[in-house]
Design a protein around this nucleic acid. Sequence first.
RNA 1: CGGGGCGUGGCUCAGCCUGGUAGAGUGCCUGGUUCGGGACCAGGAGGCCGGAGGUUCGAAUCCUCUCGCCCCGACCA
Length: 576
Amino acid sequence: MRWSSLFIPTLREVPAEAEVISHQLLLRAGYVRQLSAGIYSYLLLAQRSLLKIQAIVREEMNAIGGQEMLLPALNPAEVWQESGRWDVMGDNLFKLKDRWQRDLCLAMTHEEVVTTIARGELRSYKQLPQIWYQIQTKFRDEPRPKSGLLRVRQFIMKDSYTFDLDAPGLDVAYDKHYSAYCRIFERCGLEYTVVEADSGAMGGSQSHEFMVRSDAGEDLIVRCPSCGYAANLEKATATPSTPTVADPDADLTPEPFHTPGFKTIAQVAELTQLPESSQMKSLVMVADGQPLLILVRGDHQLSETKLAGLTKAVEIRPAQQGEIVELFGANPGSLGPVGISGLRILADAALQGRRNMVAGANRDDYHLRHVTPGKDFQAEYADLRQVAAGDPCTRCGTPVELFKAVELGHIFKLGYRYSEPMGLRVLGEDGKEITPIMGSYGIGVERILTCGIELFHDKDGITLPLPIAPFSVVITPVNNADAAQREAADLLYSQCLQAGIDAILDDRDERPGVKFKDADLVGIPYRIVAGKKLSEGKVEFLDRRTRKAEDIAVDSVFAHLQARLSEESARYRNTA
RNA sequence: CGGGGCGUGGCUCAGCCUGGUAGAGUGCCUGGUUCGGGACCAGGAGGCCGGAGGUUCGAAUCCUCUCGCCCCGACCA
């Protein structure tokens, strides 16, 4: 393509609304324009890159036997009501009415639709397994769209769904997706981590997320640098660090002491000269209307995800002050487990076996010392705490690290969550009805582009990996008015076209500086410049990432380019 | 939904406090000179100052309401 006739609106300055680097560069490099909060137009460059990403996804999905479909984005309310998600998804589901006032929604995923198709058509065990997928626009009314293309209300997703006869069959489908996803992200040139993920309150036995480390990310990942254990913080486990001070080794009785105005764990630690790890933190949560007393060690944080998983509650919220006073007769800051009855008490496993700790006295401005779990109160113990950086890894004892990441893909064993209630049945070999077991698997297509930019950029702009860059090579005559330069560039450009190389010819009537800056900004992996050394029969060949430039004879530069391209492409394929 | 910030030519912003004919840089158009890292000279186009209402002789500026965008939190397949 000839740059002079393309719409590539690059900007010199960073638009004020963009804060994360990928967002800034997507705007500056003319890839996207924003239409509204969380709604973007993908211009030429973004679309070219996204199409390359989709081609890779498609190839790998086809390679595991995936069958590509295209399902409707506009769905009738009925199927969502049938699965229960019409209500469960709440405001996140875009809902609308047609001219007859019938309820419709814009689909955020397609479990309901594929299950509807499957139950209408699948009759026999002989038809299983099935892997169905699509690459399609999804809609989610996010409460807070942000960070450019990272969290948006309309986005492209590759979503696939598998139907199997039994759990071992699902394992096979799941493993196929796992390895296909690895190949996809490797072929896109991304550095990623696979982590164990929370499978949610909706059941399901196993789930992995494919994450790219980035400060722009919204997820926190726990990883052991030694044994490779990696999990989403929501689900991660680790050994609690040893309490800073050992518990008093005696059979002591709880004893109140005055703590006027000392409400936080830190303040009480200051007063008692005992570390936070010697205290019990009491939190009151309301799970589906049921109040619960939650205990964690003073220096630990409650994981609401783990609590939700344990209680199977749909809605969990902190109790309000009024509710707390009614239940405990004291205000937050002086709450504790001693003397509480008629209330379910859940304690984090790290408190089991501890003795003589400090807790609130359920009387304003008083705490208790010498509180021993199991003796002074009874509780159910479970893993409820959020892992902290530096906690010893459960497997190998190495301190774990914590980092932010962006979720690129999520694979999920659904189990019978949809097939059972929606009545998907096939006949088995023995003539009896079987409910197929399902899996669902998603990849955020724009997130591959966005993470590619987050990972690969420098002060001059984008340095996307070759497989997902919008063009492979830019050919730049320094001065387009110079006939020799223009003709050399033209020749090379037409050679590229004939060879199927994705080249762009910068034939704009601009000064060289402008063309170089733009080429750097939009991130084309290779640049060939026809300039003043053309009179000596040489052109410059430049690698965008390394900035290495070499002078090459005009008549061999095309061969050189071909060699570099195939060498570079091979890098991404060989690792797969 | 709670907290904060911002809406002024395409982009970045000044002007607002202390009301009095709307500015700069950059980009864009025309002509000329220039041509290896965002050139220079000259001329020019482009803005209901987010919207509505109010105060005032007079509002970008003061007041009220409202809409939009961004950030933090809440929320969140």
